[in-house]
């Protein structure tokens, strides 16, 4: 799974969000390292919806602007959970190696 996809799924993990909200949340989660553009975001949402990981939640109109909310599906939660476990396991292994090489840095 690529990092932007992981971050989009993570942004939707706690609550449904609209496009603008997802972009803001991804910016926060990645400490402004990943700046999603709307074209990229909606292509990713289309793909994740086709894979059954994300679905539409509801539509709202605020100040004349359409807010369409998306949420994770049960399968999306499972996939995110598995990916988080995979990354955690990799990070653990890497940290163990680093501790062995540079005991003080860990």
């Amino acid at each position: 799974m690529r990092e932007p996809t992981f971050l989009i799924l993570t942004a939707l993990a706690d609550q449904p969000r609209h496009g603008y909200g997802i972009i803001q949340e991804v910016d926060t989660l990645s400490a402004s390292r990943v700046a999603l553009l709307p074209g990229t975001l909606y292509t990713a949402l289309d793909r994740l919806a086709a894979q059954g990981l994300v679905e539409r939640d509801r539509d709202e109109v605020a100040e004349g602007r359409l807010r369409r909310y998306y949420r994770l599906t049960d399968n999306g939660l499972k996939v995110l959970d598995a990916e988080a476990a995979r990354l955690r396991q990799l990070a653990t292994v890497a940290e163990a190696r680093l501790r062995a090489v540079r005991p003080r840095t860990a």
């Binding site: 609209h18 496009g19 603008y20 972009i23 553009l37 709307p38 074209g39 990229t40 975001l41 909606y42 602007r65 359409l66 807010r67 369409r68």
Partner: peptide, 25 residues
């Protein structure tokens, strides 16, 4: 939905899409 998201992200006073936005779209 896409245009509204783009407009939300645009800083006040911007009248033209950035090159990056145009390429992305």
């Amino acid at each position: 939905e896409i245009v509204d998201t783009l407009a939300d992200l645009a800083p006040p006073g911007r009248t033209r899409p950035t090159v990056r936005e145009a390429f992305d779209l």
